[in-house]
């Protein structure tokens, strides 16, 4: 029987409420940080679709974020488009590119999949690095934000922009949560757990993998478009492989296989690196120690471990839940 209030949704609700509260109370910089983290959280969720659900560990996911960013930048700055259709086209374009890439890469597994996604994303990085029309390695400044006057939001106010990104993130979360609870999502999890069995049951495994690869690419494109609007700027660094690496670390640190885990990972990793890097030049050392600690003591990730203990606890069971 499906329950409406799973632990994941409960925590998601809590996070949303917390960030809405914070976006009112913190000052300018905190609001900027909320928007930044929310955008990262959307990006992390999109990667978790691949890593946690379909078992496709991609080290090139930033390519689709970058494509979303560049499409937004190029269409609005160089062609003078309105932001709303630009965002839709950016998402579609990221989807199209991920379809083209996906056709070739979803057949591969494990280390081969990691290497090919890394290679493809570096190709995109190299293209934008060298392309002088789009600013080369200096990047492309001057990107505006979506006009939301009609909804009573002025997006140049950082609090309002933070709220806007939060709303988008909630919509993305609901959409992906429904998708993953649907038969489509169940099939994916099945493929992750035992691909051969699913194949022998007659499931077109490659098509399912391709579909999730495209969806993940589109959501990454959306986060890219938001990031370009937030920073007003896009450069090839947005699609460098280290960006893919950092978001992969976020997903793993948070806990793979649950959307909330990806969000928790994005929040904690970003906040930590912000705080520690203000304190010391050697902040990367402390981040490294932190990740080692997670791998040693919370191998399911921060949220994964939390959820495990929570589900075992009496309180959660007494609230009428099975230890799912």
């Amino acid at each position: 029987m499906k329950k409406l209030f799973t632990l994941d949704r409960f925590v998601a609700l809590f996070l949303i409420a917390l960030s809405l509260l914070l976006s009112e109370s913190v000052e300018y910089y905190g609001q900027e940080l909320i928007a930044e983290i929310t955008i990262l959280a959307i990006f992390a969720m999109s990667l978790d679709l691949l890593v946690g659900y379909a078992g496709l560990v991609s080290l090139g996911h930033a390519a689709f974020l970058g494509i979303g960013s560049y499409a937004t930048g190029i269409l609005t700055v160089q062609y003078g488009w309105e932001m709303f259709p630009t965002m839709l086209i950016s998402i579609a374009l990221a989807g199209l590119v991920s379809a083209l890439v996906g056709i070739f890469v979803v057949r591969l597994e494990g280390i081969f999949f990691i290497m090919i996604t890394l290679a493809v994303s570096q190709m995109f990085h190299a293209y934008f690095l060298k392309n002088r029309e789009f600013g080369g390695d200096d990047g492309m400044p001057g990107i505006q934000r979506l006009d939301l006057e009609a909804f009573g939001l002025t997006v140049f106010d950082p609090a309002d922009f933070a709220k806007f990104t939060l709303i988008v993130a909630v919509l993305v979360y609901i959409g992906l949560d429904l998708l993953m609870s649907s038969p489509f999502g169940r099939y994916l999890i099945g493929i992750h757990q035992n691909e051969n069995r699913m194949r022998s049951l007659g499931v077109p495994v490659e098509q399912y993998k391709l579909a999730i690869f495209i969806i993940a690419g589109m959501v990454a494109g959306l986060s890219g478009s938001l990031q370009a609007q937030h920073t007003g700027f896009v450069s090839p660094d947005a699609m460098f492989w280290t960006v893919s690496g950092v978001v992969l670390i976020m997903v793993i640190a948070g806990g793979t296989g649950s959307l909330v885990g990806a969000v928790v990972g994005a929040v904690i990793v970003r906040l930590l690196s912000h705080q520690i890097s203000s304190l010391t030049e050697h902040w990367m050392l402390f981040m490294g120690l932190f990740f080692i600690a997670i791998v040693l003591f919370a191998s399911d990730g921060i949220y994964g471990t939390f959820a495990k203990y929570c589900r075992r606890s009496r309180w959660w069971k007494s609230a009428g839940n099975s230890s799912d």
């Binding site: 900027e32 920073t231 912000h274 203000s278």
Partner: peptide, 22 residues
């Protein structure tokens, strides 16, 4: 007040905002 850009535009921008507004 030192802030690390990591040589990356995005980090640099976000640290710039911290220095200016926070």
């Amino acid at each position: 007040v030192q802030e690390d850009t990591e040589g990356k535009p995005n980090s640099g921008l976000s640290k710039t905002k911290k220095l200016i507004f926070s």
